[in-house]
Design a protein around this nucleic acid. Structure first.
Lengths: 239, 239
DNA sequence: GAGTGGTCTAGACCACAAA
DNA sequence: TTGTGGTCTAGACCACTCA
């Protein structure tokens, strides 16, 4: 291990080295890391210390361990995938996501405040429709600062299966960790009502989350508006 | 360690031994466990293994470690305490809880189904009002099977500072772990509207959670109904 | 100084998956 | 059979708290 006058425990330094390696693209998504013993030798620590360092990243969903095989870089799960949708009897339902638009707009005051940006700065706004069967369940808007994701567009997102997180990770090298949602009930405005085929003022559930990078920069704001008359929403917040 | 033909790793067996010890009341709330080395000797394993066994319980909030001092049995946090309440600008607010009632009733079908009980069996129903300042923010109902908590009443809950979880733990030896909430928007019915000083059909946020014991028995159903026009609710689900 | 949690090592062995 | 993750040990030292 490179010996800096660093007070933090060795295993955290190991963690940071791995994070740096991932950010530098040493191991693309799906690749295996060197084995725990190799890493230990390379970093000059014992296998147990490497293991403890990797534990945190496994817990954060960045790495996936497979016994007998290796430790792999995890793919970026869809933000919506971190939630569950249940019918009125508690049975989980599967959803389909439809990309509606990806455009460059001025950040609303709310988004700018949540991400610590200057008011009115440019952000990419990604809108998606979430369906369960033929039913429109909710609409989601994702905002990210445009200067960090130059050239983001609908085509790229569609190529990644409609998953913006996949693009953020593979094209821009940024992995995001979900924050805890802020929940409110709101009444449907015109555009949302139209998309969900509901009347205006239909009561909806609003879930707002801010996601951050591995090193703690808040970088993605998202809002889900969904109907909960036929379904229940379970957010699965770990963060 | 008592050698049963047990396939599970030693550190999980250690965890289970500690859980059993806690359930048996070996160490009341606030007490220190024996030191890691003492436990290691007593159970015939190494300190590292004991440590790993305790890690899980610390993560679950059952134990609290204090460096240089010892490892302690954690108190039962109030169920409501696992959530946060924010104003419209994201600033956290403090709440006051008022116990409304504790009564013995027949379980609704919904509660019975969620807890795996026979329909119509008796449960204790605890109702509480959550205030922020002078404002009524929400009402909460907690249901637990009456046969597990014989003699529960408002007096006992008040003695524990209005925290039912404290009573469950200290009087009945049961520690509960919070589950992930199921969320819906609902319209206020008459009684709830009256308690919250809102008109009937005011849109509210409903959060339903099931909590379980350390060994996985679902034992507590709770429903929070709250207004989110002035506040945002952040559930903090770990489970 | 004594006792606690917290970290680290070197080496061992097991469980599992693949060639 | 080989290489991987997964567990465990014995012993060492550090960091912190308290008497």
């Amino acid at each position: 291990m490179i010996e800096l006058p660093n007070k933090s425990p060795l295993y955290l330094q190991v963690r940071d080295q791995i994070v740096a390696g991932i950010a530098a693209g040493d191991w693309p998504v799906g690749d295996a890391l060197p084995s725990e013993f190799e890493l230990a030798q390379k970093l000059g620590v014992s296998q147990g210390t490497v293991r403890k360092g990797l534990d945190a990243l496994v817990a954060e969903g960045v790495l996936i361990r497979r016994q007998g095989i290796g430790t792999f870089i995890a793919d970026a799960p869809d933000a919506w995938g971190s939630a569950e949708l249940l019918d009125t009897y508690g049975v989980a339902l599967t959803t389909v996501i439809e990309l509606l638009a990806c455009s460059r707009v001025h950040a609303s005051d709310e988004v700018a405040a949540a991400l610590g940006l200057r008011r009115g700065i440019q952000v990419y706004s990604i809108k998606r429709l979430i369906r369960v069967g033929a039913d429109a369940f909710g609409v989601e808007e994702i905002c990210v600062p445009s200067d960090q994701f130059e050239g983001l567009d609908a085509r790229r997102i569609k190529q990644a299966g409609g998953n913006p997180r996949g693009v953020f990770l593979k094209q821009f090298g940024l992995r995001l960790l979900e924050g805890t949602p802020r929940l409110r009930t709101v009444l449907a405005e015109r555009e949302v009502a139209r998309l969900l085929q509901l009347e205006v003022d239909f009561p909806l559930l609003e879930s707002i989350r801010v996601a951050q990078t591995l090193d703690g920069r808040k970088i993605e704001w998202s809002r889900l508006l969904c109907r909960t008359d036929r379904y229940a929403y379970r957010p699965n917040c770990d963060a």
